[in-house]
Design a protein around this nucleic acid. Structure first.
Lengths: 204, 204
DNA sequence: AGCGTATCTTGACAATGTAAAGATACAGGT
DNA sequence: ACCTGTATCTTTACATTGTCAAGATACGCT
């Protein structure tokens, strides 16, 4: 029984995903390193390749998990929102920004990066589910006979304003010029609420 | 007179910036390489350091130039728009999206990257000028007695929707799910126009 | 013409992602 | 119990990257 433990014990994939996310949170997406991730998981630098082929494979799995947690963040907001369709729809936007603020680097990986493989089954399925949820939320706001082109336009508009707000916040573009960080969470939520309702011309 | 030309001739900084932008356009921001940029400019890999200290220095200069060209794209739209303040404001948004579509990687470098040094004088001045232009456009829409908090909210909203649209387009997130690329430029412009006017409650 | 500085090249270094080969653990059959 | 094959992990190696230091060349100035 020697003191050195030559091999790793435990379920490595989950440990690597956790290590990768910690690495992302601390160093950001642009300084992400596969070897540093392996080191953080107390494994050799080539160990990840046996579970996720590439760095692409690891980041694809991590991104897929991110989409599932994005949906969870939205559902958390929906759970504490009013039952009407407008409140439920606004909750989608609030959860979207919540997630981006809580996991900025992961958010960038999911939406603005070419590192993950978007055709990877796990990633594609998860991202489509998140998109479908947004699409359903928009459709619920309009009667069945609404023109399809108009639906698409409103979907595009809603997604753009929420996504843009999230991007500007996490990239720091919104902090210095307009002290958005000085606003209280309640003010922020009220602003998102007002914007989305104005975009959709609903009275509330 | 030997055939080999040991040293480079010409004004290197401009050549390097051009090479760096070509490199960005072809490979994207995440695969950008300083050595490849130097090779493209037919210079040794250490030559850029004498004009722009770092890779950070080069990308900061490139980003600053990007902001100046972003303003130019907006002014080009303003030149062919109506003289009223609403049309002039909408032109800012159209030029913003024009620039993002024409130079996606440069756009990401400018807004969503930590590679450039945002405290670099040239970069900071150019980015502030672009922001000020947007700010002036929003302020022109509202009378002088308008509440400052409301001004900030409307600025935030306008920037978010236009920036989000640009991000979703250049990252490819808007193409597959809603065939945005299938829409004609006129339809795209009309959509941006309608969105911005609705956000600002102006009649037109 | 000579000197000093700016500009550019060459060489070296550590860090990175990936592939190949070696080492260890483990399951299943006999 | 033992052997064998496979999965898992490590080690080694390689090409590429950004940065630094040192050497080579060009050019302005006196």
């Amino acid at each position: 029984m020697t003191a050195k433990q030559p091999y790793h014990k435990g379920y490595l994939p989950a440990l690597l995903l956790k290590a990768a996310e910690d690495e992302l949170s601390e160093n950001g997406l642009e300084r992400f390193s596969l070897r540093a991730t392996a080191k953080r998981a107390h494994v050799s630098h080539a160990a990840p390749a046996h579970h996720f082929k590439d760095m692409t494979g690891l980041l694809s799995a991590l991104g897929a998990d991110g989409y599932r947690r994005l949906i969870a963040a939205q559902e958390a907001r929906q759970a504490q929102a009013g039952p009407d369709q407008v409140s439920q729809f606004v909750a989608l936007g609030l959860g979207y920004v919540d997630f981006a603020e809580a996991h900025p680097a992961l958010f960038q990986l999911m939406f603005a990066s070419e590192k993950p493989d978007r055709s990877h089954p796990d990633f594609a399925e998860a991202s489509l589910a998140a998109f479908a949820k947004l699409q359903d939320g928009v459709n619920a706001l309009y009667p069945d006979e609404t023109d399809q082109a108009r639906r698409t336009t409103m979907l595009m508009t809603s997604w753009s304003v929420v996504h843009g707000l999230a991007e500007l916040i996490i990239s720091g573009r919104a902090t210095a010029p307009m002290q958005l960080d000085a606003r209280s969470p309640e003010e922020r939520d009220a602003m998102i609420h007002a914007i989305l309702m104005r975009v959709h011309e609903v009275k509330g």
